[in-house]
């Protein structure tokens, strides 16, 4: 069995056993949050890490997923499963349409365009009050049912979200080690050279953008069904930047970067929420963003490829693996 599959199975086993060993609703709820973010970052890592295309607007897709499923299931009585799929389809469609002009842009301009897109969608959540409820929020989103089984408590929801995360990680991992994954990485490596070997760059950028939008949308939908109440502020530009922090912290040299980055982010914010008021009693609001700012700057200056890359460097597993030759075959790198 390949080393990378083994890791996945071990991880799945850990996920499966955790609630049986640790009985804490607080910890479960944290892991559920990590699950939502891991799902988003899984798609984003493919987009940013592997294909090298920055996005500062993915909170928009997270929000579109959340509002679509909220609107269809609460207002129109759709089955949540269907409304989640509907959200994903809408997100995919919007990503496709927006992506065509957007991915003609590079670097700075791409960053600005995706940021602008995020702000526009956020404003729509705020202003289209008849559908979204505006700043008052959207109440009464039903929970998800599978036959008679209702994902209403944390333990059940935990299994639901992590099943989806695992499936998406597996999907991404399969992509990376294939013709498509190489095409994506070649775009980051050198657009001129990928053109020269016949890779339709635009097509792959769009595909991975749509994929990342679907991941974010499903995560947002599940989030909506989990918290049952959403409001626009949960989907503003800050969230897009938080996603960015997670992806950068985790890094893109392995698909696990998404999970690691999300975990670091969620755990750090929980920790800061506990510790900061003890140290600085007068600090209210989102004081903790100082730490995320510092984290971002330090990561990018000293560890630009994220924690997973740093780990690989330390353990000397620099050689990349392919189907026939898992990293195990090569042994130590440099």
């Amino acid at each position: 069995m390949h080393e990378r599959r083994l890791g996945t199975w071990l991880f799945a086993l850990g996920i499966l056993l955790f609630p049986l060993i640790v009985h804490s609703n607080y910890l479960l709820s944290i892991l559920i949050m990590i699950g939502f973010y891991s799902l988003v970052c899984n798609g984003l890592t493919m987009l940013m890490g592997y294909a090298g295309q920055i996005s500062l607007g993915h909170a928009a897709f997270y929000g579109i997923g959340a509002y679509t499923t909220a609107y269809l299931s609460a207002t129109h009585g759709w089955s949540p499963w269907l409304s989640i799929i509907a959200g994903a389809v809408i997100s995919a469609f919007i990503a496709f349409i927006v992506g065509i002009p957007t991915f003609k842009l590079k670097g700075h301009y791409l960053a600005l365009a995706t940021l602008g897109f995020g702000v526009i969608v956020y404003t729509c959540f705020k202003e289209f009050t008849s559908i979204t409820g505006g700043m008052n929020g959207f109440f009464g989103i039903p929970s998800i049912k599978l036959f008679a089984w209702e994902f209403s408590n944390d333990a059940r929801f935990y299994y639901l979200i992590w099943t989806v995360v695992l499936l998406s990680l597996l999907f991404s991992q399969n992509i990376i080690h294939s013709r498509v994954g190489r095409a994506l990485r070649s775009i980051e490596g050198s657009e001129a050279a990928s053109d020269a070997v016949g890779i339709d760059i635009m097509r792959y950028k769009l595909q991975v953008f749509v994929y990342s939008a679907i991941c974010a949308s499903i995560a947002g939908s599940l989030y909506a069904h989990y918290v049952t109440f959403i409001n626009p502020q949960a989907f503003d530009a800050m969230l897009s930047i938080y996603f960015l922090i997670m992806v950068i912290t985790g890094g893109a040299s392995s698909i696990w970067g998404a999970v690691i980055g999300s975990s670091v982010f969620v755990l750090l914010s929980e920790l800061l929420k506990e510790v900061v008021p003890l140290v600085f009693s007068n600090a209210g609001g989102e004081f903790e963003i100082v730490f995320f700012g510092v984290l971002l700057v330090v990561m990018l200056i000293y560890m630009p490829n994220g924690l997973t890359a740093a780990w690989k460097k330390i353990t000397g597993k620099w050689r990349t693996s392919t189907t026939l030759s898992p990293a195990a075959k090569g042994g130590g790198g440099r």
């Binding site: 600085f280 004081f287 963003i289 100082v290 700012g293």
Partner: peptide, 18 residues
């Protein structure tokens, strides 16, 4: 570099709250 400046803007904003 863009992302670094975003990080710095977070630091400024957080310090301002403080």
């Amino acid at each position: 570099l863009i992302i670094i400046t975003i990080g710095v803007s977070f630091v400024f904003r957080g310090l301002a709250i403080f």
